[in-house]
Design a protein around this nucleic acid. Structure first.
Lengths: 217, 217
DNA sequence: GTATCTGTGGATACACCGTACGCTAGTGAG
DNA sequence: CTCACTAGCGTACGGTGTATCCACAGATAC
């Protein structure tokens, strides 16, 4: 059985997609590949390195969005591709931002993002660019993390109102009845369940508008 | 030895502060408290519940910022308190956003944030509020996660330029020499190391400005 | 006083994890 | 043929979360 980093990573991704990071172990990967667990160490130094490799494989997909017409379209495309990738590989959102991502594809995505933002109005010098990259990446990391968490919660509590009421609902209902959280109550009770993709897009635009309207502080 | 959830959580927080979440185990907590590990299960259902409890203890501290004059000052204070808490308890940034945080203190912080934002210009109805809360929380989660990651990286690679050059630097230098990442290279080589607190504040302002300048879409 | 029951808490065990290390078999060179 | 090296597997170690059982002490009933 010939092995390679790519093959190990692909198997790991498949297992993580199916079972999450908690369900991913080197033994399981090895078993899936029909080899002994220690074989994997010929190709990856340790589990952490394997996780980094998996992240970079996902970044390879994000990097495929390519150049768009104009900085804004480019940055938007990258952000949306990141979100799509995280929804397809939910474990990615658990890892995103948790370590420096320096694989070749992560660097390529970082380059495309930074190059795009460097052309944005409001970004006048290297400091501006650093702040803008930071703001955008912070938003993306946080937004996909929250969205994946919400999907997982919905999945584990049921996808309809009745199932929610049966599990998390009683506790939350009891807390909201205290009257201590009126705005949260309004959000939970009255809040339409906004379309996630449109929310992401809207808030991404909010952040970009904030970046482009920045005056020198 | 009388136990309580509070005592267990406080011990867990102390251990996690010292050793990170990877260095936290129920056995170690139990040992620190001088009891058998299974004793903890009289007070917390499982490890996951303990982590949620720890998160809510940190939120109790964030909730202490109290009301400020005006929505903006309130929201800024909460965001800064969240960052401070995450810097004091770095494991908090690993958990933030990864599960719904519904403890009483987390709800209190959520309430203060939402109530503040509901008074912001640009937030006209419940949908606007939901999007604004989402954008702000996404930013905060992402920003503290990135900042803590950067601190950890700096700590593990050394705090000066020579140590960085000795560890991560060779790989990154080699990658940047390829010429494939010119903007990233500029950021790494020319980029001043911006003050983290000021960057957070600046970018937080950017997001809030984006929120308040939103026209109906 | 003795016997029995109940509750508390520790000990043991299980299934699993990442990774160190040793051993064996096969292959190639001399 | 013998020896050395390499590839790969098996075993082991120290650790994890959590299930389960047992012993002991105290309380209660007779």
């Amino acid at each position: 059985m010939p092995l390679s980093r790519e093959k190990i990573a692909a198997t790991a991704i498949r297992l993580a997609d199916a079972h999450g990071l908690d369900g991913l172990s080197l033994r399981k990967i090895a078993k899936e590949l029909g080899v002994g667990p220690m074989r994997l160490y010929d190709y990856v130094g340790n589990k952490s390195e394997l996780l980094d490799l998996m992240v970079d494989v996902v970044y390879a997909r994000i990097a495929e969005v390519g150049q768009r017409d104009g900085w804004r379209a480019t940055v938007l495309a990258i952000a949306h591709a990141t979100r799509e990738a995280a929804l397809d590989h939910e474990w990615f959102s658990d890892l995103l931002g948790g370590r420096p991502h320096l694989g070749p594809h992560a660097l390529a995505v970082g380059e495309a993002t930074a190059a795009g933002l460097s052309a944005a109005p409001g970004v006048r010098d290297i400091d501006d660019l650093q702040r803008a990259v930071g703001a955008l990446n912070a938003f993306i990391i946080g937004a996909v993390r929250r969205e994946v968490t919400e999907r997982r919660t919905t999945r584990s509590t049921g996808t309809d109102e009745a199932a929610f009421q049966a599990s998390l609902g009683p506790y939350l209902t009891r807390m909201l009845k205290t009257g201590r959280y009126p705005t949260v109550a309004r959000l939970v009770i009255d809040g339409a369940h906004l379309n996630a993709e449109e929310t992401f897009k809207h808030n991404l635009t909010t952040v970009l508008d904030g970046i482009t309207s920045q005056s020198r502080t």
